[in-house]
Amino acid sequence: MKGLLRPVLVIVWKDILLELRSRDLVVSVLVFGLLVVVVFNFALNNAPGRAEQLAPGILWSAFAFSAILAMNRAFVRDQEQGGLEGLLISPVSRDAIFLGKALTSLIFMLLIEAALLPVYAVMLDFSALTFTLVLTIFLGTLGFAVVGTLFSAMAVQTRSREIMLPVLFFPVVLPVIIAAVEASTRAVGGETFVGLGRWLPLIGVFDALFLVICPWVFAYVMEE
């Protein structure tokens, strides 16, 4: 376990350092996330009183599209000068590479969401700071990061990769989106943990299942 954690953290440190230098991922996705909300606000005619109904749907549409944007970039920097190849010829297990990349994406997306959430809360008029909503966002984003990292590693090598990622990603994460919207609706409505029903466990099952499957198949994806 300790042998796994160290390289994971080294990879995360590297990606955060690169992000601090260029800032091209977090900032651009943030701006995109704001745009999505503005567009949805007009597209869905978000009048006062309807906000609580519409907010969770808008929230997760924005998060899902932002996730696609962020995940599309996850392996781009590792492709430029062969950084991924450098990782693959290092004595680091493929599990560690997968978990490192997934953890980085999780951190970036959570940061973006943490910045967007208060803005959304003001714009869409709902109370953001509830334990249940934060937990829902964390579990949903974990699912996005795990599945997204696997598909991003595949998509980055295919032709027209920007399109390939959503084509692979959206059908598979659909349960997460459904469950996250339902759980968020209840959370925004002031329900407690128990009131969220089976939606959180559903996301939990999804996360756990793909945390097992994805690292395993990732090793094959990385093979030349």
Partner: peptide, 8 residues
């Protein structure tokens, strides 16, 4: 890649 999608 297809096999991965076939499983996932």
């Amino acid at each position: 890649y297809a096999a991965v999608m076939g499983i996932v």
